[in-house]
């Protein structure tokens, strides 16, 4: 079970590498566009479009990545005071909900991307970027990865619950002796 978790997290981390690269590309691209336009009046439409095209991988691949690195926002007023086991139960609920949301949105968006592919959708601006369906494909990819991470989280939460339970049984057994 632990090796499955590790495998999943490796995949999420791998995609995260791509998204990290997009962050760097975004910073350099926007800055370069600004400077080249100001100094040399150069500003191809395609590179301007690429700016906001890069938000998509960062935001969507980033979903699973931020889940993996526990960068999600939660209200911890009660959570912090719960026992490890209770926290495990909340984590389990979260993970199952994550899988459900991820699956639903992935399923909804596959049709959406397919439609864009059939239309061979590109930019309405001449000189803009083609293949907008690739951009749209980050929605199912991102939420699909989220499902994947959700599976890992489910297993982790399950281990958290059972291990604390076993621990409790062991303690109880010891006390019984």
């Amino acid at each position: 079970m632990k090796s499955l978790i590790q495998f999943i997290e490796k995949v999420v981390e791998g995609f995260g590498g791509l998204a990290r690269l997009c962050v760097l590309a975004l910073v350099l691209l926007v800055a370069t566009n600004v400077i080249f336009r100001y100094l040399f009046s150069i500003g191809p439409v395609s590179l301007q479009e690429l700016e906001w095209h890069l938000i998509s991988p960062i935001a969507l691949i980033g979903l699973a990545y931020s889940m993996k690195h526990r960068a999600d926002v939660r209200v911890d007023i009660f959570y912090d005071k719960f026992s490890i086991r209770k926290q495990g139960v909340i984590d389990l609920l979260t993970a199952v909900a994550t899988i459900a949301i991820g699956l639903y949105i992935t399923w909804l968006s596959i049709k959406y991307v397919g439609q864009s592919y059939r239309l061979q959708e590109g930019s309405p601006d001449p000189g803009g970027l083609p293949m907008r369906y690739l951009l749209k494909a980050f929605i199912p990819i991102g939420f699909g990865l989220l499902v994947f991470q959700g599976i890992a989280d489910t297993l982790t939460a399950y281990l958290k619950i059972t291990e604390t339970k076993n621990e409790a049984i062991k303690i109880a057994e010891r006390e019984a002796i």
């Binding site: 999600d72 926002v73 939660r74 209200v75 911890d76 007023i77 009660f78 959570y79 719960f82 926290q87 909340i90 609920l93 979260t94 909900a97 994550t98 949301i101």
Partner: peptide, 8 residues
């Protein structure tokens, strides 16, 4: 309130 992430 019970600690499920805000987004979820």
């Amino acid at each position: 309130i019970i600690g499920i992430p805000v987004a979820i």
